[in-house]
């Protein structure tokens, strides 16, 4: 078809349109790519197409035929555009799926794992324990690890003759010139005294932290280990409160069905003193030490033992981590082997 043909004759225009209408559907169907189809679309409906030429010739058509001719042109244009659109949709779908197909990869090759480290298991356990008490209305504080013998022992009512004070049990530092010497704290309890000196009652406190004893490393001992200390002081705290709170803690930490028992024990800074045992893995196991704050401790920090009572407790985070995760040798917890650390998820 000659696109430049003079379409001024209406009859001739009709014929050309008819011809276009007859030929185009097959050509549209035969277009194999979106690109080929777009070329064809320009040829059929573009600026230089018979349809465009027809529209341009409308002005010169006899007025009485103008309306019919216009409608006829439009009908053909609408019809053919619809066919083109339909074909385009088909071709686009095919091409899209071809593109996807050529993008196919082996998804069973290992993926790119965002690298993620871990916090230490002991830290996780300490955080979790602290959170259990925070949820019961406690706050948290930490204290110095190099401590005076006064806060570590004397303020906590340890007799001068207490064997734990000996150099065979406690690590001392060559530092300064204070009367009772500087040591590596053997428990987190000195913070009881320090905190009470700084704060008026009531006190509801937990103290996570690192402690030291002069024990060679073996499966159950380490010169460095970790404790969580607790202290509750108020006008009406009783041994019953101690039992209730620590019972609740054991259930939160080890599960709702855990069984506990309290047996008498001795700590210089509590009176009465107790150990809480839990029944786990088929046997009773000591979980923590606790007791009612010894009035001597209240006196040492300037609290009036006739006004307040309180309880205190302390537990070993390392051992609790071992119990919960089936670790049988404490030394693993201080091993920086990445294959161990990766397990602390």
């Amino acid at each position: 078809m000659d696109p430049t043909a003079n379409l001024s004759e209406p009859m001739e225009t009709h014929e050309i349109l008819e011809q276009l209408r007859a030929e185009s559907p097959a050509r549209i169907e035969q277009a194999e790519t979106v690109e080929a189809l777009e070329g064809l679309a320009v040829e059929i409906t573009g600026k230089r197409s018979p349809i465009a030429a027809g529209r341009r010739s409308l002005g010169s058509a006899p007025p009485d035929q103008r309306r019919d001719l216009g409608r006829a042109i439009n009908d053909v244009a609408v019809e053919l555009n619809a066919l083109i659109d339909a074909r385009r949709a088909v071709l686009e779908a095919v091409e899209a799926s071809q593109a996807l197909e050529s993008d196919r990869v082996d998804v069973t090759l290992p993926g790119r794992v965002p690298s993620r480290g871990t916090t230490h298991l002991i830290q996780q356990v300490m955080d979790e324990i602290v959170d259990i008490f925070v949820a019961m209305g406690y706050t948290a504080a930490t204290g110095p690890e190099a401590e005076t013998e006064f806060y570590n022992f004397t303020a906590l009512n340890f007799p001068v003759a207490h064997p734990t004070r000996l150099e065979s049990d406690t690590l001392y530092l060559d530092y300064g010139d204070v009367p009772e010497g500087i040591l590596l704290r053997t428990h987190t309890s000195p913070m009881q005294a320090r905190y009470m000196e700084e704060h008026d009652p009531p006190v509801y406190l937990v103290v996570p932290g690192r402690v030291f004893r002069r024990d060679p490393m073996d499966p159950t001992h380490s010169p460095v280990f970790h404790q969580i200390e607790g202290l509750a002081v108020d006008t009406d705290i009783t041994f019953g409160d101690l039992k209730g709170v620590l019972d609740h803690f054991a259930r939160e930490f080890l599960g709702p069905d855990i069984k506990t028992k309290f047996i008498p024990h001795y700590f210089p800074f509590t009176e009465p003193s107790a150990e809480m045992h839990v029944f786990t893995n088929g046997r009773w196991m000591e979980l923590l030490g606790c007791g009612m704050v010894n009035p001597a401790v209240f006196e040492a920090v300037g609290y009036d033992p006739d006004e307040v009572t309180g309880f205190a407790f302390g537990m070993g985070a390392d051992r609790l981590a071992m119990v919960r995760h089936g670790i049988t040798d404490l030394r693993h917890l201080f091993d920086p082997d990445r294959r161990i650390l990766e397990q602390y998820r």
């Binding site: 019961m136 504080a141 006190v203 406190l205 108020d234 039992k243 028992k261 009465p272």
Partner: peptide
């Protein structure tokens, strides 16, 4: 308390007035 039996003293769950994690 020792002779009375610690297990015979009833527990009481009691919440504190501490201000949470600093």
């Amino acid at each position: 308390a020792r002779l009375y039996g610690f297990d015979n003293i009833p527990g009481r769950l009691r919440f504190g007035t501490g201000l949470g994690l600093p």
